[in-house]
């Protein structure tokens, strides 16, 4: 049994890589070596594609399914379950405001209002230039620094409504 698990082989495990970039296919292949079957890689594979393309289109999803030899329906089943797999186009920078209890006590509602004003949109929308999408988010694990805002992978702690411009500035300046 020990022999079997240690001989996880990638040979013959994947299907057509059509529709995936060489980098995406290589990253998915590298990840596969962690798991004895392909299904376990499905969520991570979607995240890899999303990392490169910003979101997961129907075409991307089908390409992932074909590469992992899973049915598109199976992959769609997980894609729709997990809130951090974006099945719609999102902005370059996804701004997520924590709306869970500690951040709510500390005034996250004012932050949402201010962000909607500054970005000229409402929760769930993307700016016309495709730079920002504003979403609410569940507890981000930094409640001692509430209220918390995440922009992409970046944490912003102890955010004040009057500091929203300064918070957004570096992301506004990055080339799209």
């Amino acid at each position: 049994m020990q022999e079997r698990i240690e001989m996880i082989t990638l040979e013959g495990r994947t299907g057509s890589a059509d529709g995936l970039s060489p980098e995406e296919a290589a990253e998915i292949l590298a990840g596969l070596s962690q798991y004895p079957d392909n299904q376990a890689m499905s969520i991570e594979a979607l995240k890899i594609v999303q990392h490169h393309r910003g979101w997961v289109s129907n075409e991307s999803l089908k390409a992932v399914a074909a590469f992992l030899r899973l049915s598109p329906e199976e992959v769609e089943g997980v894609a729709t379950f997990y809130n951090l797999v974006y099945r719609q186009r999102v902005g370059t920078h996804v701004v997520r405001v924590c709306d869970s209890v500690s951040c709510w006590i500390m005034g996250c509602e004012a932050l949402v209002g201010e962000l909607q004003n500054k970005l000229q949109l409402t929760l769930g929308e993307t700016t016309a230039d495709g730079r920002f999408t504003l979403l609410p988010g569940p507890c981000m694990g930094a409640c001692d620094h509430a209220p918390v805002v995440m922009v992409g992978d970046d944490y912003h702690f102890d955010v004040k409504a009057e500091a929203i411009d300064a918070l957004l500035k570096p992301y506004r300046q990055k080339p799209l």
Binding site: S100, V101, S102, P138, C139, G141, A142, C143, D144
Partner: peptide, 11 residues
């Protein structure tokens, strides 16, 4: 998978 509201010890 620390996600209990109000919890940040594991991070």
């Amino acid at each position: 998978d620390e996600m209990e509201p109000g919890t940040y010890k594991d991070r």
